[in-house]
């Protein structure tokens, strides 16, 4: 994730998601604080290891959807009972069944747009956004564990390097992002 301050990052690349998972387990056992893990595709089973809580996007989606439902139904009700009541085919002004299709469509529309906007906002993504990347191969076939080493001593850094060596990283490097 993009931050205002610069971070010194020490990262290692792994060739396979199973090696990566074992490495993350090992890091947890050694109480190392992982800054982030980057993968070319969603690796299942990684979230609990990293202590990531379940996303709350679905709650946001429900709220947006409810707003859509109320907007559509409320506006149609107001228009046809208060603003300009017209009789269509001898039906009551407030003909609820025929409001259902549009109410449904707007529920879906609000939920979808709201969730997508929320997703990009909380992830710090969007048109024209450039987030620093550690290595070009992460979106291809490499699995990356990154440690923040801003105030780390030589000793700590060398112990992290030996962690990468032991857990089978194929490439180790530092980068300032």
């Amino acid at each position: 994730m993009a931050t205002a301050t610069h971070n010194e990052v020490l990262f290692g690349l792994y060739d396979d998601e199973e090696i990566l998972m074992d490495a993350v387990k090992e890091a947890n056992a050694q109480h190392l604080t992982i800054m982030d893990v980057y993968t070319p595709f969603p690796v299942h089973g990684l979230d609990p290891l990293l202590g990531l809580k379940e996303s709350r996007l679905h709650i946001a989606g429900f709220i947006y959807g409810s707003i859509g439902t109320m907007t559509a139904f409320g506006v149609m009700t107001w228009i046809f009972t208060r603003d300009w009541p017209i009789i269509f085919g001898g039906k009551p002004y407030w003909s609820v069944p025929s409001f259902i299709p549009i109410t449904f469509e707007l529920t879906v529309l609000f939920a979808a747009i709201g969730m997508v906007v929320t997703f990009y906002t909380v992830c710090g993504l969007g048109p024209g956004v450039t987030n620093p990347t550690l290595d070009d191969r992460i979106t291809d076939d490499k699995f990356c564990i990154a440690f923040r080493t801003n105030n780390s001593s030589e000793e700590e850094i060398s112990s992290l390097r030996s962690f990468f060596d032991r857990t089978g990283a194929s490439f180790i490097n530092t980068k300032t992002i």
Partner: peptide
């Protein structure tokens, strides 16, 4: 959109 492949992003995605 500045995609990095972060684990949290994948989870939300």
């Amino acid at each position: 959109f500045g995609w990095t492949g972060s684990a949290k992003h994948w989870q939300r995605w």
